[in-house]
Computed example of a mutant assay.
Amino acid sequence: MSRQTNADVHSIHVRSQGNFRPTNRTSPPIQKPEPFDEIMTLHDLGFDPWFAAHAPESQPDGCSFARVCAVDRGSYCLGNESGEVPAELSGKLLYQSDRKADLPCVGDWVTAQYYDQGKAAIIHQVFPRKTYLRRRAAGGSVDQQMIAANVDIAFVVQSGHFDFNPNRLERYLFMTADGQVEPIVLLTKTDLLTLEELEQRLSIIASLTTARTLALSAVTGTGLDELRDVLAPGKTCCLLGSSGVGKTTIVNRLLGRDAFDTRTVSDSGEGVHTTTRRQLILLDSGAMLIDTPGMRELGVLGHGDTVDAGFGELGELAASCRFADCTHRHEPGCAVRAAIQRGDLQEERYANYLRLKKEAEYFEMSSLDKRKKDKSFGKLVKSVKKGMKG
Rank of each mutant, 00 (worst) to 15 (best):
T23Q: 15
G315F: 05
D163S: 15
A52E: 10
A309P: 08
T274W: 14
L45C: 11
Q341I: 14
L94C: 12
I30N: 03
F127Q: 03
G304K: 09
I281D: 08
K373Y: 15
E359W: 08
W50M: 08
T220P: 14
C334K: 15
Y353A: 08
L169N: 10
M365K: 11
V272G: 08
G241C: 06
D261E: 13
K385S: 13
R263M: 14
L314M: 03
G139P: 03
I123N: 00
K357I: 08
E38N: 04
N24Y: 04
C69D: 05
H43N: 09
G241F: 01
M288I: 03
T190E: 07
A66R: 03
L42Y: 00
C105I: 00
E182G: 06
L301P: 06
D72R: 12
Q113I: 06
A7D: 07
P60Y: 04
A206I: 08
F164V: 05
N252A: 10
K119A: 09
V272S: 11
Q117P: 01
G234L: 13
A52S: 06
E313M: 10
M40G: 03
L227K: 13
D72C: 03
C63W: 00
S268A: 14
Q346D: 13
T327I: 03
R134P: 04
T275D: 07
A259I: 04
E38G: 06
A339I: 10
T275S: 14
P33G: 01
T248L: 15
R129S: 00
A101R: 07
L103C: 01
A87I: 00
E197C: 14
G310T: 12
H303I: 04
Q31M: 00
K382Q: 13
V307E: 07
A287N: 05
R171L: 12
S376D: 13
Q96R: 09
L368S: 15
K247L: 08
P166H: 02
K370R: 15
N352P: 01
L198M: 07
H13E: 02
A211G: 06
F162H: 14
Q125V: 00
S268P: 03
Q180F: 15
Y362L: 13
K370Q: 08
Q200T: 06
R296I: 11
A318L: 09
V265G: 06
S367Y: 15
G244R: 13
G179R: 04
K32S: 04
D152V: 09
R73Q: 10
R15T: 10
V181M: 07
D98Q: 13
V300Q: 07
T222H: 13
H273S: 14
K235Q: 12
A232M: 09
V142R: 04
S97D: 00
L173G: 02
P332E: 04
A232H: 11
D116E: 00
T264S: 12
F260C: 09
L103T: 00
K382T: 06
